[in-house]
Design a protein around this nucleic acid. Sequence first.
DNA 1: GCCAACGTTGGC
DNA 2: GCCAACGTTGGC
Length: 139
Amino acid sequence: MAYWLLRSEPDAYSWDDLVRDGETEWNGVRNATARIHLKAMVPGDRAIFYHSNTERACVGVMEITRAWQPDGDDGKWASVAVKPVAPLPRPVPLADIKAEPKLAEMMMLKQSRLSCSAVTPEEWAVVMHMAGATDAAAA
DNA sequence: GCCAACGTTGGC
DNA sequence: GCCAACGTTGGC
């Protein structure tokens, strides 16, 4: 299983919106690097939901429910389907991620504007620990 | 509101 | 194909 981080401005689409919807199409990504990651996602992969901009914190865990399909008028972009797994018991602010040496190499820090980035299993475990997440959400 | 990072566009 | 100009994003 692979781990990912998907960011969204909560004003545009938030964790609460995802919980309300039950499942959603993660579309509208218009960045070549992000697309590489979207196309690498397979059902069962886990992803951190990160609120950018106004909140700047990881807020929940999602599961990829369907591999990518073409997105956009010309079909040259990609989108996947996701569903919520569990909210993080304690949201993990960006400031805490930056302050944690074990997360210094995280892709989201290296490329701060990238909306879909990869997370290593080690990084995933650290973030879940910081969030106080139990095994159910962390696995 | 400002600024840095970075992707995209367009002229050459 | 290169590179400067420009626009957008996101953190502060």
